[in-house]
Write a protein that binds this DNA or RNA. Structure first.
Lengths: 118, 118
DNA sequence: TGCTTCACGCAACCAAAGGTTGCACATACC
DNA sequence: GGTATGTGCAACCTTTGGTTGCGTGAAGCA
Protein backbone atom coordinates (compact mmCIF):
# COMPACT_ATOMS: atom_id res chain seq x y z
CA UNK A 1 0.00 0.00 0.00
CA UNK A 2 2.31 2.74 -1.27
CA UNK A 3 0.88 5.81 0.41
CA UNK A 4 4.17 7.61 -0.19
CA UNK A 5 2.52 10.72 -1.58
CA UNK A 6 4.52 13.79 -2.56
CA UNK A 7 2.79 16.31 -0.31
CA UNK A 8 4.03 19.30 -2.29
CA UNK A 9 2.68 17.95 -5.54
CA UNK A 10 -0.56 16.90 -3.91
CA UNK A 11 -1.23 20.20 -2.17
CA UNK A 12 -0.41 21.97 -5.43
CA UNK A 13 -3.37 20.27 -7.09
CA UNK A 14 -5.32 20.38 -3.84
CA UNK A 15 -6.23 24.02 -4.33
CA UNK A 16 -9.45 24.47 -6.35
CA UNK A 17 -8.21 27.58 -8.14
CA UNK A 18 -5.03 25.83 -9.22
CA UNK A 19 -7.02 22.82 -10.46
CA UNK A 20 -9.15 25.13 -12.59
CA UNK A 21 -6.02 26.83 -13.85
CA UNK A 22 -4.59 23.50 -14.95
CA UNK A 23 -7.91 22.74 -16.66
CA UNK A 24 -7.75 26.04 -18.53
CA UNK A 25 -4.09 25.61 -19.46
CA UNK A 26 -4.82 22.14 -20.80
CA UNK A 27 -7.92 23.06 -22.77
CA UNK A 28 -6.37 26.18 -24.28
CA UNK A 29 -2.90 24.75 -24.73
CA UNK A 30 -1.28 27.37 -22.51
CA UNK A 31 -1.90 30.87 -21.21
CA UNK A 32 -0.65 33.90 -19.30
CA UNK A 33 -1.49 35.15 -15.83
CA UNK A 34 -3.69 37.79 -17.44
CA UNK A 35 -5.52 35.45 -19.81
CA UNK A 36 -6.18 32.95 -17.04
CA UNK A 37 -7.46 35.57 -14.62
CA UNK A 38 -10.10 36.55 -17.19
CA UNK A 39 -11.66 33.11 -16.80
CA UNK A 40 -11.31 32.97 -13.03
CA UNK A 41 -12.93 34.78 -10.10
CA UNK A 42 -9.58 36.06 -8.81
CA UNK A 43 -7.16 38.82 -9.77
CA UNK A 44 -4.16 38.48 -12.04
CA UNK A 45 -1.82 38.79 -9.07
CA UNK A 46 -3.46 35.88 -7.30
CA UNK A 47 -3.16 33.82 -10.50
CA UNK A 48 0.50 34.79 -10.77
CA UNK A 49 1.14 33.49 -7.26
CA UNK A 50 -0.58 30.21 -8.09
CA UNK A 51 1.47 29.91 -11.26
CA UNK A 52 4.60 30.35 -9.18
CA UNK A 53 3.47 27.46 -6.97
CA UNK A 54 2.70 25.24 -9.96
CA UNK A 55 6.05 26.16 -11.49
CA UNK A 56 7.91 25.33 -8.27
CA UNK A 57 6.54 21.78 -8.23
CA UNK A 58 7.16 21.42 -11.97
CA UNK A 59 3.54 21.19 -13.10
CA UNK A 60 3.96 24.11 -15.53
CA UNK A 61 6.80 25.75 -17.44
CA UNK A 62 7.26 29.33 -18.57
CA UNK A 63 8.47 30.79 -21.85
CA UNK A 64 8.89 34.51 -22.21
CA UNK A 65 7.84 36.02 -25.52
CA UNK A 66 8.15 39.79 -25.69
CA UNK A 67 6.30 41.27 -22.75
CA UNK A 68 4.28 38.08 -22.33
CA UNK A 69 5.07 35.15 -20.07
CA UNK A 70 3.28 32.13 -21.44
CA UNK A 71 2.75 29.06 -19.23
CA UNK A 72 2.05 25.54 -20.37
CA UNK A 73 1.41 22.29 -18.52
CA UNK A 74 4.13 19.70 -18.06
CA UNK A 75 2.15 16.66 -19.17
CA UNK A 76 4.49 14.10 -17.64
CA UNK A 77 4.43 15.83 -14.27
CA UNK A 78 0.65 16.12 -14.31
CA UNK A 79 0.46 12.43 -15.13
CA UNK A 80 2.46 11.74 -11.96
CA UNK A 81 -0.01 13.82 -9.97
CA UNK A 82 -2.92 11.96 -11.51
CA UNK A 83 -1.26 8.68 -10.58
CA UNK A 84 -0.95 9.81 -6.98
CA UNK A 85 -4.61 10.73 -6.85
CA UNK A 86 -5.57 7.40 -8.34
CA UNK A 87 -3.33 5.60 -5.85
CA UNK A 88 -4.83 7.29 -2.80
CA UNK A 89 -8.32 6.75 -4.16
CA UNK A 90 -7.63 3.10 -4.86
CA UNK A 91 -6.11 2.55 -1.41
CA UNK A 92 -9.15 3.98 0.36
CA UNK A 93 -11.50 2.20 -1.97
CA UNK A 94 -9.79 -1.10 -1.22
CA UNK A 95 -9.92 -0.43 2.50
CA UNK A 96 -13.62 0.46 2.43
CA UNK A 97 -14.30 -2.61 0.31
CA UNK A 98 -12.47 -4.86 2.75
CA UNK A 99 -14.30 -3.45 5.75
CA UNK A 100 -17.61 -3.96 4.02
CA UNK A 101 -16.71 -7.54 3.15
CA UNK A 102 -15.81 -8.30 6.75
CA UNK A 103 -19.03 -6.73 7.96
CA UNK A 104 -21.01 -8.88 5.54
CA UNK A 105 -19.22 -12.02 6.68
CA UNK A 106 -20.08 -11.29 10.30
CA UNK A 107 -23.65 -10.59 9.35
CA UNK A 108 -23.91 -13.91 7.47
CA UNK A 109 -22.46 -15.77 10.44
CA UNK A 110 -24.94 -14.10 12.77
CA UNK A 111 -27.80 -14.95 10.43
CA UNK A 112 -26.90 -18.64 10.33
CA UNK A 113 -26.68 -18.73 14.13
CA UNK A 114 -30.13 -17.26 14.65
CA UNK A 115 -31.30 -19.81 12.13
CA UNK A 116 -29.95 -22.64 14.32
CA UNK A 117 -31.61 -21.18 17.41
CA UNK A 118 -35.01 -21.37 15.83
CA UNK B 1 -17.03 15.61 -18.05
CA UNK B 2 -18.57 16.24 -14.65
CA UNK B 3 -15.98 18.40 -12.95
CA UNK B 4 -18.61 19.53 -10.47
CA UNK B 5 -16.39 18.91 -7.46
CA UNK B 6 -17.51 19.72 -3.93
CA UNK B 7 -14.67 22.06 -2.97
CA UNK B 8 -15.33 21.70 0.76
CA UNK B 9 -15.14 17.93 0.61
CA UNK B 10 -12.11 18.03 -1.64
CA UNK B 11 -10.13 20.49 0.46
CA UNK B 12 -11.03 18.43 3.53
CA UNK B 13 -9.12 15.48 2.12
CA UNK B 14 -6.60 17.80 0.49
CA UNK B 15 -4.77 18.34 3.74
CA UNK B 16 -2.05 15.71 4.34
CA UNK B 17 -2.63 15.55 8.10
CA UNK B 18 -6.35 14.99 7.61
CA UNK B 19 -5.66 12.26 5.05
CA UNK B 20 -3.43 10.47 7.56
CA UNK B 21 -6.09 10.90 10.22
CA UNK B 22 -8.64 9.24 7.96
CA UNK B 23 -6.16 6.44 7.34
CA UNK B 24 -5.71 5.95 11.08
CA UNK B 25 -9.42 6.11 11.80
CA UNK B 26 -10.08 3.52 9.11
CA UNK B 27 -7.33 1.13 10.14
CA UNK B 28 -8.16 1.32 13.85
CA UNK B 29 -11.90 1.51 13.43
CA UNK B 30 -12.17 4.89 15.16
CA UNK B 31 -10.27 7.03 17.63
CA UNK B 32 -10.15 10.16 19.78
CA UNK B 33 -8.24 13.39 19.33
CA UNK B 34 -5.75 12.19 21.91
CA UNK B 35 -5.25 8.71 20.45
CA UNK B 36 -4.80 10.11 16.94
CA UNK B 37 -2.31 12.76 18.06
CA UNK B 38 -0.11 9.99 19.48
CA UNK B 39 0.41 8.67 15.94
CA UNK B 40 0.83 12.09 14.34
CA UNK B 41 3.50 14.78 14.44
CA UNK B 42 1.03 17.42 15.71
CA UNK B 43 -0.60 18.25 19.02
CA UNK B 44 -3.99 17.05 20.24
CA UNK B 45 -5.42 20.54 19.74
CA UNK B 46 -4.39 20.58 16.10
CA UNK B 47 -5.97 17.16 15.63
CA UNK B 48 -9.15 18.39 17.32
CA UNK B 49 -9.40 21.25 14.82
CA UNK B 50 -8.94 18.86 11.92
CA UNK B 51 -11.60 16.56 13.35
CA UNK B 52 -13.95 19.54 13.50
CA UNK B 53 -13.31 20.16 9.79
CA UNK B 54 -13.88 16.52 8.89
CA UNK B 55 -17.04 16.52 10.99
CA UNK B 56 -18.34 19.66 9.29
CA UNK B 57 -18.13 18.05 5.85
CA UNK B 58 -19.59 14.80 7.18
CA UNK B 59 -16.53 12.59 6.73
CA UNK B 60 -16.56 11.58 10.40
CA UNK B 61 -19.11 11.32 13.21
CA UNK B 62 -18.72 11.68 16.95
CA UNK B 63 -20.11 9.65 19.82
CA UNK B 64 -19.48 10.73 23.38
CA UNK B 65 -18.74 7.96 25.86
CA UNK B 66 -17.95 9.16 29.35
CA UNK B 67 -15.17 11.67 29.11
CA UNK B 68 -14.15 10.40 25.70
CA UNK B 69 -15.27 11.67 22.33
CA UNK B 70 -14.77 8.85 19.85
CA UNK B 71 -14.73 9.60 16.11
CA UNK B 72 -15.37 7.16 13.30
CA UNK B 73 -15.35 7.51 9.52
CA UNK B 74 -18.57 7.86 7.56
CA UNK B 75 -17.87 5.22 4.92
CA UNK B 76 -20.49 6.43 2.47
CA UNK B 77 -19.22 9.98 2.61
CA UNK B 78 -15.62 8.90 2.15
CA UNK B 79 -16.72 6.85 -0.84
CA UNK B 80 -18.13 10.05 -2.35
CA UNK B 81 -14.79 11.76 -1.80
CA UNK B 82 -12.95 8.86 -3.40
CA UNK B 83 -15.30 9.08 -6.38
CA UNK B 84 -14.52 12.75 -6.79
CA UNK B 85 -10.81 12.06 -6.75
CA UNK B 86 -11.23 9.30 -9.29
CA UNK B 87 -13.35 11.58 -11.47
CA UNK B 88 -10.83 14.41 -11.52
CA UNK B 89 -8.02 11.96 -12.15
CA UNK B 90 -9.92 10.29 -14.97
CA UNK B 91 -10.82 13.65 -16.56
CA UNK B 92 -7.21 14.80 -16.63
CA UNK B 93 -6.02 11.42 -17.75
CA UNK B 94 -8.47 11.48 -20.65
CA UNK B 95 -7.43 14.98 -21.58
CA UNK B 96 -3.73 14.11 -21.53
CA UNK B 97 -4.45 10.99 -23.55
CA UNK B 98 -6.39 12.95 -26.17
CA UNK B 99 -3.66 15.58 -26.51
CA UNK B 100 -1.06 12.87 -26.96
CA UNK B 101 -3.18 11.15 -29.62
CA UNK B 102 -3.58 14.40 -31.54
CA UNK B 103 0.14 15.06 -31.33
CA UNK B 104 0.86 11.62 -32.68
CA UNK B 105 -1.58 12.11 -35.55
CA UNK B 106 0.12 15.35 -36.52
CA UNK B 107 3.51 13.69 -36.31
CA UNK B 108 2.36 10.84 -38.56
CA UNK B 109 0.98 13.32 -41.09
CA UNK B 110 4.24 15.24 -41.05
CA UNK B 111 6.22 12.03 -41.52
CA UNK B 112 4.21 11.01 -44.57
CA UNK B 113 4.68 14.46 -46.11
CA UNK B 114 8.47 14.42 -45.72
CA UNK B 115 8.30 11.00 -47.28
CA UNK B 116 6.58 12.46 -50.35
CA UNK B 117 9.14 15.24 -50.62
CA UNK B 118 11.99 12.79 -50.91
C1' DT C 1 -15.64 11.25 50.73
C1' DG C 2 -12.00 13.44 48.83
C1' DC C 3 -7.91 13.55 45.86
C1' DT C 4 -5.65 12.57 41.59
C1' DT C 5 -5.67 11.58 36.82
C1' DC C 6 -6.81 12.21 32.27
C1' DA C 7 -9.60 13.68 28.05
C1' DC C 8 -11.43 17.85 26.55
C1' DG C 9 -12.59 22.63 25.40
C1' DC C 10 -11.37 27.36 25.12
C1' DA C 11 -8.43 31.42 24.34
C1' DA C 12 -4.30 33.78 22.92
C1' DC C 13 -0.91 33.78 19.91
C1' DC C 14 2.09 32.85 15.59
C1' DA C 15 3.42 31.79 10.66
C1' DA C 16 2.13 30.61 6.12
C1' DA C 17 -1.21 30.77 2.33
C1' DG C 18 -4.62 32.89 -0.61
C1' DG C 19 -6.39 37.10 -1.78
C1' DT C 20 -6.66 42.19 -2.54
C1' DT C 21 -5.12 47.15 -4.02
C1' DG C 22 -1.71 50.35 -5.67
C1' DC C 23 2.27 51.47 -8.22
C1' DA C 24 6.46 51.19 -11.06
C1' DC C 25 8.47 49.28 -15.31
C1' DA C 26 9.13 47.53 -19.87
C1' DT C 27 7.43 46.21 -24.31
C1' DA C 28 4.33 46.82 -28.22
C1' DC C 29 1.75 49.70 -31.17
C1' DC C 30 -0.06 54.27 -33.27
C1' DG D 1 7.18 60.49 -28.88
C1' DG D 2 3.02 59.02 -26.44
C1' DT D 3 -0.28 55.62 -25.09
C1' DA D 4 -1.96 51.19 -24.05
C1' DT D 5 -1.01 46.64 -22.03
C1' DG D 6 1.37 42.59 -19.57
C1' DT D 7 4.31 42.02 -15.59
C1' DG D 8 6.57 42.35 -11.18
C1' DC D 9 6.86 44.10 -6.57
C1' DA D 10 5.23 45.70 -2.02
C1' DA D 11 1.90 46.46 1.58
C1' DC D 12 -1.83 44.79 3.61
C1' DC D 13 -5.89 41.68 5.17
C1' DT D 14 -8.11 37.14 6.34
C1' DT D 15 -8.12 32.25 6.82
C1' DT D 16 -5.88 28.16 8.08
C1' DG D 17 -2.80 25.00 10.36
C1' DG D 18 -0.12 24.98 14.25
C1' DT D 19 1.47 26.05 19.02
C1' DT D 20 1.23 26.85 24.38
C1' DG D 21 -1.33 27.59 28.57
C1' DC D 22 -5.16 27.00 31.50
C1' DG D 23 -9.74 25.66 33.26
C1' DT D 24 -13.21 21.93 33.77
C1' DG D 25 -15.54 17.62 34.41
C1' DA D 26 -15.80 12.70 34.44
C1' DA D 27 -13.07 8.19 36.11
C1' DG D 28 -10.58 5.91 39.24
C1' DC D 29 -8.70 5.11 43.66
C1' DA D 30 -7.04 6.17 48.88
Amino acid sequence: MSLAVDDDLWSAIGDPTRRRMLDLLLSEGGGTATSLSEHLPVTRQAVAKHLAVLDRVGLVHVSTAGRERRFRVDHARLAVAVDQMTDVGAAWDARLRRIRRIAETIQRRRDSETEKEQ
